[in-house]
Design a protein around this nucleic acid. Structure first.
Lengths: 94, 94
DNA sequence: GTAAAATAGTTTATAATATAAACCAAAAAT
DNA sequence: ATTTTTGGTTTATATTATAAACTATTTTAC
């Protein structure tokens, strides 16, 4: 009846990250921090979790001489997000 | 941009409870436990939280000689649920 | 009729999670 | 040259969800 919601996505910050990445395909750490209104620490932790799950890919490089962390959603991440949304619909309408 | 999700509703079990109550208007403890597939202990705790927030009203009576806990969603609960769903839409479509 | 098991929960303890605070290295500004 | 800012990571803490243990009554089985 009510299916389980992927706990990795059922978190405000991680869902926000995924929500942004699904429409952008690529985003920088700072951008994500601003859009999600999160602290750098929290964002760092949650990005790692999404990365470890294979939902996103994180690339660390340099913009000039400053570190630059860039994130992309993976095919697996897109699938997980879509599944999550479909499951959620059982909860929010009807 | 991305508004905060009411943490009281952003929990699988509590959301499930509210989802059921919003279409049923009244449900018994046992019914909720079965439909949400939760343990009695967890359900008891989460019902209390929803009750303390004023999102549901809990009535304890007896069915014959067995205790009977009946739950109803309140107007405040309905409003909170609707707000939650609207906020959630920012996350899941777009 | 009494011991065992089931019902309908509550309370308490534990594990997991999210978040914030503290920290680090390098770069830019004063 | 030292203070501040940038772009993060790591660690500690507070919150949460969940499970386990418990209670009281009530059936059921012997």
């Amino acid at each position: 009846m009510l299916n389980d919601l992927d706990p990795l996505l059922h978190s405000q910050l991680r869902l926000g990250i995924m929500s942004l990445l699904i429409s952008l395909e690529s985003a920088e750490f700072i951008f994500l921090r601003e859009k999600t209104n999160s602290t750098a620490g929290n964002l760092s932790v949650q990005l790692d979790k999404l990365s470890e799950a294979g939902y996103i890919k994180i690339e660390k490089s340099f913009k000039g001489k400053k570190p630059l962390t860039t994130c992309k959603i993976t095919r697996k991440g897109i699938k997980a997000f879509e599944d999550y949304v479909n499951t959620l619909k059982q909860y929010i309408h009807k």
